[in-house]
């Protein structure tokens, strides 16, 4: 499903070249749940961004389902992100001016693979599944942080992605909400079979994963 080969990412700063990720090799089989753990600044999120087609590696290759992601053209890369990747960020990532249902429908509308009616029906069903069926017309500012995170999961699933990337999706939530969000993500992984890669600080959460990748100083430790 996922094959990273010698993936590196370096940034030029005023103090010189900073290496965030240094030659990582990573393989993830389809349908797996992988947890990436490590301290802040260890390069977890940068690795996720390169896997998800959000940040171009300085070196190395990333293959998702046999596609060499970073050899794609800009347009093809946008389509890849739209169709193959679902992303849940570590912050409230809904567009504040759109209703929840519009936020969830947006990736499908951008891809234009199905009719508007079908897209909205699916968005409604996903929000329903996340327990947000009563908030279709609500704006993000009208719901709690946990509900916003659930809506973001619904949005990530609208195009049936092969790979769901969750970058510390519960970092700013209380314990109970954190458990509920994790339950949703795990259910997606188990019931739909979507490959899930989760970046987390929480070792208890990571222990539920089938594969744990520990990163330190931009390299895989274990």
């Amino acid at each position: 499903m996922l094959a990273c080969r010698q993936v590196s990412k370096s940034y030029k700063t005023e103090r010189g070249l900073v290496t965030a990720v240094a030659g990582i090799d990573l393989d993830v089989a389809a349908g797996r749940f992988v947890a990436i753990i490590g301290r802040s600044g260890s390069g977890k999120s940068t690795l996720m961004a390169m896997v998800g087609g959000l940040s171009r590696p300085s070196a190395g290759t990333v293959e998702v389902g046999g596609t060499d992601v970073w050899r794609l053209s800009e347009t093809a890369l946008a389509a890849f992100r739209n169709e193959r990747i679902g992303y849940v960020f570590q912050f409230a990532s809904l567009l504040p001016t759109l209703r929840l249902i519009d936020n969830v429908a947006l990736p499908a509308m951008l891809g234009r693979r199905q009719s508007t009616a079908a897209t909205y029906a699916k968005a409604s069903s996903l929000l329903d599944r996340m327990g947000l069926g009563g908030y279709l017309d609500a704006y993000p500012s009208e719901i709690s942080a946990g509900e916003q995170r659930r809506a973001a999961i619904a949005r990530a699933l609208i195009n049936d992605p092969a790979l769901l990337l969750a970058d510390e999706p519960t970092s700013d939530l209380d314990e109970q909400t954190e458990i509920e969000i994790m339950d949703e993500l795990l259910a997606v992984n188990r019931e739909i079979g979507t490959t899930l890669i989760l970046v987390t600080h929480n070792l208890a959460l990571a222990e539920q994963a089938g594969q744990i990748v520990h990163i330190a100083n931009g390299a895989i430790v274990t």
């Binding site: 347009t75 946008a78 389509a79 739209n82 567009l95 947006l106 990736p107 951008l110 949005r155 195009n159």
Partner: peptide, 15 residues
Amino acid sequence: AELGLLKAIGARGAQ
């Protein structure tokens, strides 16, 4: 951040 989000969910440059 919003533009990045739009790009992350598949918006093309032209969009």
